[in-house]
Design a protein around this nucleic acid. Structure first.
Length: 202
DNA sequence: CGGTTTTGACCGGCGC
DNA sequence: GCGCCGGTCAAAACCG
């Protein structure tokens, strides 16, 4: 269960370089969903049917079944939002930056440079597979991560990040270095990931 | 030895 | 009011 994506003992932060090639080779960012406190506007699950989100992205005709997964997600979103609004008024209630990725990969979890500790596993409806819950290991950092496989297309993995990191990425230096060094088209996609990791304060 | 994973139980919200 | 459903906790096992 360690690092299925990188059996290599050499895999470290430095291996990001190594990580890059296979990463883009094996993974497809076929669908990304952004939602910053329901303010981004890139995702609008409440007004638009979840399907539209999928179709607006590139699903290469395999979007048929994926709708269900997205649906579940959006449903969660709305309930989550309601929960926030219903909470106390002055409680430093962070809107919670939420980002959902839908990637095509053979592995379950992608290493994004942070240290995650698994704290739960649950099987959800609309998905025969189990959903895994991770939390950032750093103290005071309550960022959560949710990983599940698409019940319809086992090839796809849905990863949802929630919250903003308090601290630097353990491999932050490398990221900067890499980002500067590698300006390939591929990094276009990955830069998205990076932007999430550094999560700008609104 | 410390930190992490595992797994079932528990809890709280929502819908009916 | 009850049951479903999703999310979290916590204790024990497990691993490096």
């Amino acid at each position: 269960m360690n690092f299925p994506q990188n059996p290599n003992p050499n895999f470290t932060f430095l291996s990001e370089e190594n990580f890059l090639s296979p990463f883009m080779d094996n993974f497809d960012f076929s669908n990304l969903m952004f939602d910053e406190g329901g303010n981004s506007g890139l995702v609008q699950e409440e007004t638009s049917p979840p399907t539209s989100i999928v179709s607006s992205e590139t699903l290469t005709g395999e979007s048929s079944g994926s709708g269900s997964a997205v649906k579940t997600l959006s449903k969660k979103e709305s309930s989550f939002e309601g929960k926030i609004r219903g909470s106390k008024d002055g409680e430093t209630k962070e809107p919670g930056h939420r980002v959902a990725f839908r990637t095509r990969s053979k592995i379950d979890v992608m290493d994004d440079g942070y240290k995650w500790r698994k704290y739960g596993k649950k099987s959800v409806k609309n998905n025969i597979n189990k959903r895994n819950y991770y939390k950032c290991s750093s103290e005071g950092c309550m960022v959560k991560k949710r990983v599940e496989r698409d019940g319809k297309d086992a090839a796809y993995v849905i990863t949802t990040y929630e919250g903003v990191h308090n601290h630097e990425i353990p491999s932050h230096v490398y990221y900067n270095d890499i980002v500067s060094s590698y300006d390939h088209d591929n990094w276009n996609q990955h830069s998205l990931l990076r932007s999430i990791e550094i999560s700008p304060p609104s």
